[in-house]
């Protein structure tokens, strides 16, 4: 009886029940971002993103788990261009998770917002609820013209028509690192894992790591005076820290 009462109390607490294994996070330094889109290409290659074709791109159905948003400011000739890399924010209070009727998207023990492709029935409600527009739907059956199917990453499943997909922080790499660390009887180092986008960023604008470790690059970034979260006012509690362009540096 007391056992049930304890469980009830635990299950009534908001947030993740129990302790997270890791709290993966990403930091985006907008001062360093050049908008070169190397991360976009790397993501495409790593995660088997479908190539939807010219017609569907024209209709707004491209699939880019990571995209660089461009915002123009001012009038010619005093014109400025800002880049905003936008990817799944893995929100701690994610609107997309609550709305899924089949629990195809939920929060896992690494603090990640995961998407279970096999469970998805394609109501697209998660995408409608997402304020960041980082969920992408497979409107048609994805196809790779031969021999392009030869370059698919064997560690990542290929999604079928009618399924939602989004950035996973390259969960296959996280899993691999966790397995190795487990074999060696240690924790994964705070900056050990690198998703494809982070790995390929030439200006090192992207940093990935464990926010539970106080000296990881992301933890340091989140303490910066330039740190902010996109659409903070919606209270979705994203784990991606953006460092605004500015004069002051750490």
């Amino acid at each position: 009886m007391g056992d049930y009462l304890d469980k009830w109390k635990q299950y009534r607490e908001p947030g993740f029940p129990g302790q997270l294994d890791y709290a993966w996070g990403l930091a985006v330094d907008l001062d360093r971002c050049t908008g070169c889109e190397a991360c976009v290409v790397a993501c495409q290659a790593e995660n088997n993103l479908p190539i939807v074709g010219e017609k569907d791109v024209g209709e707004g159905r491209e699939i880019q788990w990571l995209r660089i948003e461009r915002y123009w400011e001012g009038e010619y000739p005093d014109l400025r261009l800002r880049f905003l890399p936008m990817l799944c924010q893995h929100c701690a209070s994610a609107p997309c998770e609550t709305v899924c009727p089949v629990a195809a998207t939920y929060h896992n023990q690494d603090g990640l917002n995961v998407q279970v492709y096999n469970r998805c029935i394609g109501t697209r409600s998660c995408a409608a609820y997402c304020p960041y527009e980082v969920r992408y739907f497979n409107w048609r059956t994805p196809r790779w013209d031969p021999p392009l199917e030869q370059q698919l990453n064997p560690d990542v499943s290929v999604r079928e028509m009618g399924v939602m997909e989004k950035c996973t922080f390259c969960i296959q790499r996280i899993r691999l690192a966790k397995d190795q660390a487990k074999d060696e009887g240690r924790r994964v180092g705070p900056d050990e894992v690198q998703p494809a986008c982070v790995q390929s960023c030439p200006s090192q604008a992207l940093r990935f790591g464990d926010r539970q470790a106080p000296d990881s690059a992301v933890s340091k970034a989140s303490r910066s005076a330039r740190a902010y979260a996109v659409l903070e006012e919606l209270n979705t509690r994203p784990v991606i820290t953006y460092l605004r362009k500015g004069e002051e540096h750490d």
Partner: peptide, 15 residues
């Protein structure tokens, strides 16, 4: 059904 597999969603409680 919420307590068979703990699938936390949206930072809400399990119940």
């Amino acid at each position: 059904s919420a307590t068979r597999h703990l699938l936390p969603t949206g930072g809400r409680p399990i119940i």
